[in-house]
Simulated assay, not measured.
Amino acid sequence: MTTDRGTVYGGTAEGDTVDGAERGAGIEVKPVAGHIGAEITGVDLAEEIDDAVVAEIRAAVLRWKVVFFRDQKLDHASHVAFARRFGEPVVLGRRGSASPPGFPEVETTADRLELGGRFGMDHDEWLRRRRHTLLRGWHCDHGARVDPPAATVLRAETVPPYGGDTTWSNLAAAYAGLSAPVRAFVDGLRAEHRLGVGYQARPGDDGYLRHLLDHQVASVHPLVRVHPETGERVLFVNGYYVEQIVDVSRPESAALLEMLLEQAVRPEYTVRFRWEPGSVAFWDNRATIHLAPGDNAHLGFPRTMHRVMLTGDVPVGVDGRPSEPLTGTEAGRW
Rank of each mutant, 00 (worst) to 15 (best):
G11T: 07
H35E: 11
L92W: 04
A156Q: 07
R23M: 11
R84V: 00
H290T: 05
V316P: 14
G196S: 11
V54Y: 08
S179K: 10
G20E: 03
A172V: 13
V90G: 00
D51P: 01
D51A: 11
W334E: 12
G102R: 11
T288Q: 00
S97H: 10
R321Y: 04
G317Q: 03
F119I: 04
D206V: 03
F301C: 02
G117W: 10
H35L: 10
G164V: 00
E39T: 12
G143E: 10
T270Y: 07
G177W: 08
T230I: 11
F273E: 11
A144T: 07
H290E: 05
E157F: 08
R183G: 06
A184G: 08
T12E: 13
V186N: 00
R225H: 07
S279C: 13
L92R: 09
L260W: 04
Y269G: 01
L115K: 14
Q216H: 10
L223F: 07
Y208L: 13
A60P: 01
E107F: 10
R23Y: 07
V66Q: 03
V106E: 06
Y241Q: 11
V90H: 04
G37V: 05
T41Q: 02
H123P: 09
T158D: 06
A184L: 06
P228M: 02
A172C: 10
A25F: 09
I36M: 06
G143L: 07
L62M: 02
F282M: 10
V32K: 11
R136F: 13
A287P: 13
E232Y: 06
L209P: 00
M259D: 08
K65E: 02
R145W: 12
W138V: 06
D16P: 03
A81N: 01
H306V: 06
T3A: 12
Y269P: 06
P149N: 08
T166W: 07
A254S: 06
P100Y: 13
D147G: 02
L45K: 00
M1Q: 15
T166K: 09
I40Y: 00
N170D: 15
F86S: 03
K30C: 11
P222F: 11
V217W: 12
D124W: 09
S99E: 12
Y175N: 01
L189S: 02
T7V: 13
K73L: 07
G24Y: 02
D44N: 09
E48F: 02
D19S: 15
H193Q: 14
E107A: 14
E105D: 12
L299H: 13
Y240Q: 12
G102Y: 06
T230V: 13
L195R: 15
T288P: 13
S249C: 01
A38P: 00
F86K: 02
Y175T: 01
A191R: 06
S97F: 04
V314M: 08
P302Q: 03
E22A: 11
A191D: 08
P161T: 00
G87M: 05
G312I: 05
A255R: 11
R84E: 07
G93S: 07
V220D: 02
Q244E: 15
T311S: 15
R95G: 01
H123E: 14
H221E: 07
E14Q: 09
T329S: 15
A174N: 08
L299W: 09
